[in-house]
Write a protein that binds this DNA or RNA. Structure first.
Lengths: 150, 150
DNA sequence: CGCAATTTACTTGTGCACAATTATATTAAA
DNA sequence: TTTAATATAATTGTGCACAAGTAAATTGCG
């Protein structure tokens, strides 16, 4: 055997933190699905709407940055949300490159319907308040560390 | 306003644990990409190979279960790994429905090349050993709780 | 036994997700 | 001011990811 046993142990699925993180993230999106279906949204569309519910207006570039999504993903998502009547896409007057997104009345109405979702999802996960806090802190810490490597 | 301020606060991106989990998972897969490119694997293909490196043989059904993937995802992934020569797909003799996957010599060779990946990724995340442990425990706990709701 | 229910896997369709490329507008530098 | 560099966004191509529907083998019940 070329390597010692220890170096292979790290390749076992049960010794990897990456896998439960990946699986948990997918499972979470799956739990959202039935709730979001009532709003005719996917999870990705939902997080875009969350930004707009909070800010009313946002540039495409800022959105891409805060959601960690590139334009290859964002462009078609924004097109669908525009077609659904939840937001508008306009070019900035002073700079034709910039795309400005604005919440519409239709999009604003969704916010009421969505208000009960976070607590429902939290219940699905079944963690204590303290555990949620720890999970939040650690995922953001790892995210920040990985960002800095780009 | 139909709802009180508090119920809307939960809809803010920065108050959601789901979002950093989702973003962290994607960022992790992105960090894997350059390492896995040298092995000609995607992340999903990599976790399939991890199971085979550990077990040599596994049924398609068991694989789907332990990776939390359905056949719609798994079938094409397994086809590509078969074409790449990393595994074989055979029907079980006693039950023609069952698909048995077996690691090939070519697939086994990849294991050596992959041995250094876990520590490289761990370094990217920049967490302490203790933090890794906590993250592992919490994500598996949430995963288990969500599974039980199906 | 004969047939309904179940299990396993595949197929189809939709929507991310991202790398790589392209297009256009703006800014900066020579 | 012309041109090179940069910034913003769209496009293209590949590969997940999953719901819904289909197909075939097996099991179990009458």
């Amino acid at each position: 055997m070329a390597k010692n046993d220890h170096s292979y142990d790290t390749l076992k699925l049960k010794n990897q933190v990456c896998f439960p993180l990946y699986a948990c993230s997918k499972e979470l999106v799956r739990q959202y699905t039935p709730y979001l279906k009532e709003l005719n949204l996917t999870y990705t569309q939902y997080i875009v709407m969350m930004v707009l519910w909070e800010r009313e207006t946002v540039s495409s570039r800022e959105l891409a940055e805060c959601l960690h999504l590139d334009y290859g993903t964002l462009t078609p998502v924004l097109k669908r949300l525009d077609q659904a009547g939840y937001l508008t896409r306009e070019r900035a007057e002073n700079d034709e490159r910039l795309l400005t997104l604005k919440l519409t009345e239709g999009g604003r109405k969704l916010k009421d319907k969505a208000a009960e979702i976070p607590s429902a999802i939290a219940e699905c996960m079944g963690l204590t308040m303290e555990e949620f806090g720890v999970l939040y802190t650690l995922t953001y810490k790892a995210l920040k560390n990985m960002e800095e490597r780009q």
